[in-house]
Nucleic acid binder design. Structure first.
Lengths: 219, 219
DNA sequence: ATATATTTTTAGATGATTCTAAATTATATT
DNA sequence: AATATAATTTAGAATCATCTAAAAATATAT
């Protein structure tokens, strides 16, 4: 059984390792969780003892099979709660993250399965991130950052890489949302900014930073 | 700001003091929270420093105005979540307590107000306990234990004193539920057991223990 | 290949919550 | 009022998660 804090470490490590594949460094974890490397060093040794990660001194850590399962359970809960907040309680997509960070630690298998059914077994959360099923199966569709599209290309916004309120509110202002169709009207080589058309009507300028954090599926 | 553990202490003290009125002893708190008196002694000194209770050495504690407000906020959250679990997620009334114990500590004023609206501003939880409103106002209707009713008296079941799964499942078996009409058919002086009629049909025997934990409103 | 910079780990300390055991205070009984 | 019993508090220790400062290991750059 993992503590709340341990769950947060594991989740961060899982995200940093891109689904449990890559090795993750102590400093990267410290940055992600806003703690000091010394604290991370302690904690990863504890998580290694609990067999959810494999730790080699000075070499960083890798998520184990058990660790991946545990991480996906937390992620499943986080994303289901986000759907609940947006679809049932009328939260905006930029308001859900902090609350879901708390709700994801509620321990009750019955609760999460009932919630999943209540929401109609949603496949993605309000930011387009896929929701693992009860068995931990997560299906990711091929998506690429908007700024990689060629001039004239058309695509549909499927997800956002950055779920911070600041970024999401910016997208709200632009009129960009999940499911919206976009077309690249102009690309500025110099700073990677673009001019895009949203839903065959609105035309907006977006910076490189914004373009990198919008994930699309090409038509 | 109170920690999760502090909130649990304060809530227990509030309940033991019958709404913040009475003085509560160290041992009573230890029993209620299943900790040792020594731990309680430490914690009540901390809660006194935080001004939510008033502590006098060797004399027990009393909830302050601020403490009552804080306790009612936690109780409000607990009961609203219970309503959500039963009405929206089809939990039985004996399954909600442990989950609500976790959910009551989620910190988000927006969440709880949205949840309250979503549920239609319920006035009581699945055990008949009144839900404080956002201002902490809690309206209690006059209720008495079933076993105090006279022979032949009729009443409506309004709440239960004991919310343990064991007791609630027993009530399910008897066919007793909130809102059910009851009539006292027989009273046994010797052991305080009774024979009662539920909803003008079922006739059941109930022990003194059961009768004391069912709260009714007389017609 | 060696010096320097960076990363990581360890050592030692702190605060929160809990415990056991011992000491103290209050209460109840004769 | 004296004593026995019960309740309460304190002292000291353990665990969890965190930190700073210092040491050790690894990586990088000439």
């Amino acid at each position: 059984m993992l503590s709340l804090v341990e769950e947060n470490y594991l989740k961060a490590i899982y995200h940093l390792s891109e689904g449990g594949q890559a090795q993750v460094s102590t400093n990267a974890i410290a940055d992600a969780i806003h703690t000091k490397p010394a604290s991370v060093s302690d904690m990863i040794q504890k998580l290694d003892r609990k067999r959810v990660i494999q730790y080699t001194k000075y070499q960083g850590v890798k998520v184990t099979k058990e660790g991946k399962e545990a991480a996906l359970k937390v992620i499943r809960k986080h994303r289901l709660w986000e759907v609940f907040l947006v679809e049932q309680l009328n939260f905006n997509w930029d308001e859900v993250h902090d609350v879901a960070e708390q709700l994801e630690h509620i321990k009750s298998p019955l609760l999460i399965e009932r919630l999943d059914a209540f929401l109609g077994h949603p496949k993605v959360d309000p930011h387009g991130d896929p929701i693992p099923d009860a068995q931990g199966v997560i299906n990711t569709k091929p998506q690429k950052p908007l700024h990689q599209l060629d001039l004239g290309a058309e695509a549909i916004i499927r997800a956002v890489k950055d779920s911070s309120p600041a970024f999401l509110r910016h997208l709200d202002k632009l009129g960009a949302y999940l499911g919206a169709g976009v077309k690249i009207l102009e690309k500025e080589e110099f700073d990677n900014s673009m001019q895009i058309q949203i839903d065959q009507s609105t035309v907006v300028f977006i910076s490189n930073e914004v373009g990198q954090n919008i994930l699309v599926q090409e038509n």
